[in-house]
Amino acid sequence: MKPVPALAEGFPDLSGMRVAREPHWFRWLSAALIVLVLAAIGRAFANGQIEWAYVSRFLTAKVILEGIVNTMVMAVLAMALGIFLGVVVAVMRLSPNPVLKTVAAGYTWLFRGTPLILQLLLWFNLALVFPTIGIPGLWSARAVDVMTPFLAALLGLGINQGAYTSEVMRAGMLSVDIGQYEAAQAIGMGRLRALRRIVLPQAMRVVIPPLGNEFIGMVKATSLASVIQYPELLHNAENIYYANSRVIELLIVAGLWYLLVVSVLTPLQMLLERRFARGTLRLAR
C-alpha cells in the first residue's frame, strides 16, 4: 500500500484575511438619479393646480371615513363569500363525480368570462328581469326592495371572486403530495374528512400568498360598486367633488386611503403565513 502523500507546497494560508467591501459606484449613482427624478415629480405636483388644503381637509372628513369603513366591510364579506365558494367549487372540481365536475367548471367559465362591472350591473338591475322574487307560496318581495346596492355588490364581487379563488384553492390542493391523501385513507378517512383535516391545512400554506394578492385586488375592486350606488370610498369621494368640483384633490384623498389600507394588509398576511407554516422548517422570512 502506498503512503498518503504530504500536503503540497505553494498554497498559502488565507485564514485571517477579510473579504473586502466593494464600492458599488453604479448603485449610488442610480439611487441618486431616482431621488432627483422623484424630487422633480414632487415639485411639479406641489406647484401644479392642486389645493393641498382640500386634501388634508377631506382626508378625515366623516363621509370619507364612512366610505373607507364601507369599503372594508364589503371587501371582507365579499372575500369571505369568495373563499367559501372557492373551496366548495375546488372540491367539486377535484371530485370523481362528473356532474359536480361539470357544474364547477361551468361556474368558473361563466363568472371569469364576463367583466366584473357587467356582473355588478346585472345583479343591481335584476328587478328588470324578475319584478318579484321569492319562494312560491311561502314568501315573496319586490326585487327592487331586496336587491339593495349592498346586496348587489356583495353578490357580484363575492361570486366573481369565488370563480378565481376556486382555481387558487385547486392549485393548493394539487400541490399536496398524493401520499398524504393515501395515508389519510389508510387510517380510514373518507374523501371529505381527508380534505378537511389533512389536505386543506397543508394547501393553506401555499394559497395564502396568492389569496393575499386576491384580497388586495378585492379592496380596490370594491370601487367598481360605486357605479351601483354602494357608498364606498370612491363613491363618496365622487359625491363630494360633484358638489365642490375639487376632482383631483378628492381622488388623491381616496388614493391615499387605498394605499394605507393595502400597506396595513401586507404585514397581516405575513402573520397568517407564519401561522400555517407550522411543522415546516422553512419559515417565511
Binding site: 403530495d177 398524504q180 389508510a186 380510514g188
Partner: peptide
C-alpha cells in the same frame, strides 16, 4: 371501504406523516 380499511394498518415507503401535526 373506510370501515374495512380499519382492519389493516399501512406503512409507506416514504412515511407520509402529516407534516402539519406533531
Amino acid at each position: 371501504i373506510g370501515r374495512q380499511r380499519l382492519k389493516t394498518g399501512m406503512v409507506f415507503q416514504r412515511f407520509n406523516l402529516f407534516p402539519h401535526k406533531t
